[in-house]
């Protein structure tokens, strides 16, 4: 490790730099990067940010679409029983792993927010370019849900408590629990009642009925089919609390998966392959 000696030598004695390091000079100088190196390091930052935003925009959106996509894609799937439960449970997975990667390696409390932001932007791009411009479904039919409120709370828990276990218990629960209220605020108008053919319907039901989807017969919806009068009929809050409970475990599981993914393991390469690049086999004479 002689080659890292220079950089280690640059470590300065501890000093109180809190409240001062607005532009990050102290971080740079303590890191041992020379000004020249810092410029390339910033270029590297830009490349990494570009990669993170695009790959997780793609991977999280794919993940959410294929695990709980129908609840996200159609306004008439956004019920009180399943939607507040399955959406946050699926949506927490990548943000939790990203939290672990960014926090453990770089002490950046932004992983969950990055994931939820990339997801929401990617979703709206799809809604605009595919749902509206290509097939002509009105935006009201495909209005998505967002996980930003929960993701922000999860990042805040992490920066305040600085511990993955407490982040799971408090932040993970908050992620699942606030999904319902934070999305209901946005979608409340779609639950206004209307009368149609002598039956009650919500506006969301009407939107799904009026603009027909070839492969979405009404019965295919996995939604609440009737509820007991538990908890003062607060069905959605019961779902929200249950979602929070599952999210605690999901967060811890995916945090660990994020740690597993960020290990810098090299496996032994084949001697034949190495020999193509001029590395002599260690076994040979």
């Amino acid at each position: 490790m002689t080659s890292t000696a220079d950089i280690d030598a640059a470590a300065s004695p501890r000093e109180n730099t809190r409240f001062k390091d607005k532009k990050g000079e102290t971080v740079i100088s303590v890191s041992g990067l020379t000004p020249g190196a810092a410029r390339y390091s910033r270029l590297f930052d830009v490349l990494v940010v570009a990669a993170v935003v695009t790959i997780f925009g793609g991977a999280i959106h794919l993940h959410v679409m294929l695990t709980v996509g129908d609840w996200d894609m159609y306004v008439d799937w956004k019920d009180r029983q399943y939607w507040p439960l399955v959406m946050p449970v699926s949506m927490i997975m990548f943000p939790a792993a990203l939290q672990a990667i960014f926090w453990v390696n770089f002490r950046l409390p932004i992983g969950a927010t990055v994931g939820a932001t990339a997801l929401l932007i990617a979703t709206w791009i799809g809604r605009y370019a595919n749902w509206w411009i290509w097939t002509g479904f009105p935006f009201t039919e495909g209005v998505p849900s967002q996980a930003l409120a929960g993701a922000l709370l999860m990042d805040m828990t992490l920066i305040v408590l600085r511990n993955s276990l407490f982040t799971s218990i408090i932040g993970g629960f908050a992620f699942g629990f606030v999904f319902w209220p934070s999305n209901y605020s946005a979608l409340a108008p779609f639950y206004l009642p209307v009368e149609h053919q002598g039956m009650v319907a919500s506006l969301a039901d009407m939107i799904g009925y009026t603009f027909p989807r070839s492969n979405m017969p009404e019965y295919l919806r996995i939604i609440e089919r009737g509820t007991l009068r538990t908890f003062g009929s607060s069905v959605s809050w019961v779902s929200a609390a249950f979602a929070g409970f599952i999210c605690i475990f999901m967060h811890q599981l995916w945090w660990r998966l994020g740690l597993f993914a960020s290990q810098a393991t090299f496996l032994k390469n084949s001697d034949v392959v190495k020999s193509f690049m001029g590395i002599k086999s260690s076994v040979a004479s």
Binding site: G58, H61, M65, L66, G69, M73, A122, G126, N130, W134
Partner: peptide, 10 residues
């Protein structure tokens, strides 16, 4: 994963 997969869904 996002753009064209979403298009497939719709």
């Amino acid at each position: 994963g996002s753009f064209f997969a979403d298009g497939d869904g719709v």
